[in-house]
């Protein structure tokens, strides 16, 4: 059932795309690879678990709750860790190491609070399933596609058609000049982190609902693969993240068919590796993007 495999791969790809977008946003504006994004995504998933299983809130309040928290966490990361380093003029590597440290902190805090085992997550958006030409489509899969489309559409709108989006694009080109023309750089950067956090929360909730499992290491693997997706598409470019995510999802599904399940996990890394070797700026990236980053 190759068509089913391809469809499942597409759904997987949407999930990676949702996460990849968060990386792209932060990289676009700060030239920083936000290695803590995976941890924030895990935090979002756990907040979803908190809301759904412990506080018994409905789906929408849970998602809003998760978004609130991840947005707040991301802003904290920016304010407490990254901003002082930026103002010190620290090298990008310093910031990269700091965010990696932050991801360890977040992940392990989650482990200490929720335990280290895999916890069950309740089924969400369970309205049944239907068949389209031999391919089984479940309602949650439909929701994932819907959410991906809506979210990315919204992000595209914000970046292209609002003043805030314009400010974001200015800052990604030249932060000093943006400051000089009166853009509140600090606020826009915080805003970007909030949006990135919101994406992480949504992704966390959808994935937890899809696989019905939450565990504190879910951010490391998913984060790295989504990162591969972002790089594949051209980091900093939103549409690139979507394409990259979907491509990686498809490749993973097909890798199981062709090579066997034990190799599929490595697909994303092999792709990442090849992209970085051949064309680091990715499919849609311009070559001037990867200067001394």
């Amino acid at each position: 059932m190759l068509s089913q495999q391809i469809f499942n791969g597409l759904i997987l790809g949407c999930i990676y795309a949702l996460l990849a977008v968060g990386y792209s946003l932060v990289f676009g504006i700060l030239r920083l690879l936000n290695m803590s994004h995976g941890a924030v995504y895990t935090a979002g998933a756990f907040m979803g678990l908190l809301g759904a299983s412990y506080l018994h809130m409905g789906a929408v309040p849970t998602i809003l709750f998760a978004m609130l928290l991840t947005g707040a966490v991301n802003v904290c990361i920016n304010r407490a860790v990254l901003q002082p380093l930026r103002e010190q003029g620290a090298a990008n590597i310093t910031m990269l190491i700091s965010v990696t440290g932050v991801s360890y902190i977040i992940q392990n805090t989650l482990m200490l609070v929720f335990g280290s085992q895999k916890l069950p997550f309740p089924k969400v958006f369970d309205f049944g399933s239907f068949r389209v030409g031999g391919v089984l489509v479940t309602s949650i899969q439909v929701m994932i596609v819907l959410v991906t489309v809506v979210l990315l559409g919204a992000l595209g709108l914000i970046t292209k058609h609002t003043r805030t989006g314009l400010a974001m694009r200015c800052i990604s080109q030249n932060p000093k000049a943006s400051n000089m023309v009166g853009i509140d750089v600090r606020w826009i950067i915080s805003f970007t982190f909030i949006v990135s956090g919101i994406c992480a929360a949504i992704a966390g909730y959808m994935v937890s609902g899809y696989y019905q499992l939450v565990y504190f290491t879910m951010g490391t693997t998913a984060g790295l693969k989504a990162f591969a997706a972002a790089v594949l598409g051209g980091i900093g470019i939103l549409s690139g993240s979507v394409v990259g995510g979907i491509l990686i999802g498809l490749c993973e599904a097909l890798a199981t068919v062709v090579f066997g399940g034990e190799y599929s996990e490595a697909t994303a890394y092999v792709i990442l590796f090849l992209v970085l070797l051949i064309k680091p700026s990715g499919l849609f990236g311009k070559d001037d993007v990867d200067e001394k980053v």
């Binding site: 495999q5 499942n8 199981t256 068919v257 599929s264």
Partner: peptide, 9 residues
Amino acid sequence: DDGTTDMNA
């Protein structure tokens, strides 16, 4: 692979 949760394929 040992960490997977997606067995759909």
